[in-house]
Design a protein around this nucleic acid. Structure first.
Length: 553
DNA sequence: CTGGGGAGGGGGCCC
DNA sequence: TGGGCCCCCTCCCCA
């Protein structure tokens, strides 16, 4: 019995020794790993600092340029009404093309499409016209709201095309964009503040790193993965930040023992956050997550491409044309009343919903043309009906092509658009895609003022000036500048009428033909003449009617 | 004269 | 980078 007790005691002592040895080994491994981890963190912090300084320089540069352009636009401001300025510019660009897009024109002389700055630019497709001053149309409201608001809104909605054209601003007028400068000063204008934040708040650098490297992957693609980008990009920005907020007050920044969060790099960064700088960090994060980082990334991208473009392709400062006005001021509440409800909803949606999957794209408002005021409520209904009929065909095609917002291999398309959650295989594609939402158009034509989000679109557009029509029909003399135009044309020869009406068995070669035909079945005449209230099913009919009947008015 | 249909021009967007 | 498709606009023809 005694031997048994002694034996158990010895076993217990041996196990204790072994356990202690194991613990010691584990501690040693942990210490080693921790040392390596700390080293990596310190290196990352240094990288953050360098990147942040680069960012600050870029931000300052861009903001100065924008402020200068804003000043010039402000000089030529002409309040004419509260019309969506971006939509107007879109139509201006469209009208510009239409003004020169002659039907059955085989060769267009170069320069025919030249935008003349001294000409009023027709905006309304009917009789309405506007001028270049439309760029400041909304400034009328801004002036009513106060100079500060005006400056800030102009900052977000400025039109580089006009700003580039309008070079005759009165230099005696003070530029005075107070809100812009103050905002930039708060965020990144003063290096001292940033340097302080570098030492006090490491979390502040995390959103910067996350977001900016997400767009400018070339600078640090490894950092993305290290920070968890690959797991849930897009939707993970805010959770990371909120998590940081939660852990701020629970752990000290100088106690290495508390750094036991393992691989959760977000938590490990959050440890060293200074609550005093929370506002600054929140502003920066919010600012970037709303799309401003696209602006930044696009500018970087554009600048990076400057030397890659040929003589005919110019990539200059970013062009913001989209429905989501961008701003460098993170405090959107200052913008809300002047930016328009669309933008507000947009940003609120981004703020509150981290999984933005059902967001209607901003270009959903694209169809709100000037004549929409004469369109009855049924227009929306007809649009839905069109979609029901037409989308079945489109969806089948999309499925055949493997398209879709969330289709495809999620592992391959792990870079998500922060606006619509669509997945892409690499950050560049996300960046290009997000121009759909941001309206950034870095590629401008040297012969007219058209701007494009993609280089290919610009190259294709330049055939308008050169008259090049490389796509010729083998069965007739027709030549086309678009490859798809040729393909569409060849349906005439093949008799292919893919678009069939479900109600009368009619079929069409154009999808748009079917679209118009459906209106016949529905008896919709959404386009009403403002003079005699006669209604038409197509805008062109209304226009012809107005030209013939009311041209003298 | 109205309006339905045919077809090209051209930009947006994605693969 | 090019190809492809979608979409809108426009003009023309014709019943």
């Amino acid at each position: 019995m005694a031997n048994c007790v002694v034996f158990h005691t010895q076993i217990a002592s041996i196990m204790e020794v072994l356990a202690n040895a194991a613990v010691a080994e584990i501690c040693k491994l942990v210490d080693d790993d921790y040392a390596v981890f700390r080293l990596e963190i310190s290196q990352s912090q240094k990288e953050n600092g360098a990147l942040r300084r680069k960012l600050q320089l870029l931000e300052l540069k861009v903001v100065r340029e924008r402020a200068e352009r804003t000043r010039r636009e402000h000089v030529l401001a002409s309040p004419t009404g509260s019309v969506n300025i971006l939509d107007r510019y879109r139509r201006m660009a469209r009208v510009e093309g239409h003004l020169t897009g002659g039907h059955r024109r085989f060769v267009k002389p170069a320069g025919h499409n030249t935008w003349r700055d001294d000409q009023p630019i027709a905006v309304d497709e009917g009789s309405g016209t506007s001028t270049q001053h439309v760029i400041m149309i909304e400034s009328a409201d801004a002036e009513a709201a106060g100079p500060g608001v005006k400056q800030e809104r102009s900052e977000g909605e400025e039109d580089p095309r006009h700003s580039r054209d309008i070079q005759t601003g009165d230099p005696t007028i003070a530029p005075a964009p107070p809100r812009i400068r103050s905002s930039i000063t708060e965020i990144s204008g003063t290096p001292n503040a940033i340097l302080k934040s570098e030492t006090d708040t490491e979390t502040l650098s995390v959103p910067h790193r996350l977001l900016h490297t997400g767009s400018d992957h070339r600078s640090d693609p490894v950092g993305l993965e290290r920070l968890g980008w690959q797991n849930a990009p897009g939707s993970e920005y805010l959770p990371v930040f909120h998590q940081s907020k939660r852990t701020v007050n629970s752990q000290g920044d100088d106690d290495g023992d508390t750094l036991d969060t393992g691989g959760d790099s977000s938590c490990s960064y959050a440890i060293e956050m200074d609550p005093g700088n929370m506002t600054l960090g929140l502003e920066t994060q919010t600012d970037l997550s709303r799309g401003d980082w696209n602006q930044y990334s696009s500018s970087v991208y554009s600048e990076g491409c400057l030397d890659k473009k040929g003589d005919d392709i110019v990539v200059d400062e970013m062009k913001v044309e989209g429905d989501t006005p961008l701003t460098w001021n993170a405090d959107e509440t200052h913008l809300g009343h002047s930016q328009g409800r669309d933008f507000l909803d947009y940003t609120e949606n981004l703020e509150t919903n981290q999984n933005v999957t059902t967001h209607s794209p901003p270009h959903a408002f694209r169809d709100c043309d000037p004549e929409s005021t004469s369109m009855g409520p049924s227009d929306l209904h007809s649009r839905v009906l069109f979609d029901q009929v037409l989308n079945s065909n489109d969806m089948a095609r999309a499925q055949a092509q493997g398209q879709g917002a969330t289709s495809g291999n999620s592992k391959e398309k792990r870079f998500l658009c922060m606006f619509c959650n669509k997945g892409f295989s690499c950050p560049q594609k996300v960046e290009i895609h997000q121009r759909v939402h941001t309206g950034v158009k870095p590629f401008s034509c040297t012969q007219c003022h058209m701007r494009f989000a993609e280089a290919g679109s610009l190259k294709r557009h330049q055939r308008v000036h050169t008259g090049e029509k490389p796509f010729s029909c083998t069965q007739c003399h027709m030549c086309f500048s678009h490859s798809f135009s040729l393909k569409r044309h060849q349906r005439v020869h093949t008799g292919d009428k893919s678009y069939s009406c479900p109600q009368c068995e009619k079929s069409f070669t154009h999808q748009n033909q079917l679209k118009m035909h459906l209106k016949v079945h529905m008896g919709e005449r959404p386009f009403a003449c403002t003079h005699c209230r006669k209604r038409f099913s197509e805008r062109s009919y209304l226009r012809i009617h107005q030209q013939k009947k009311h041209s003298t008015l």
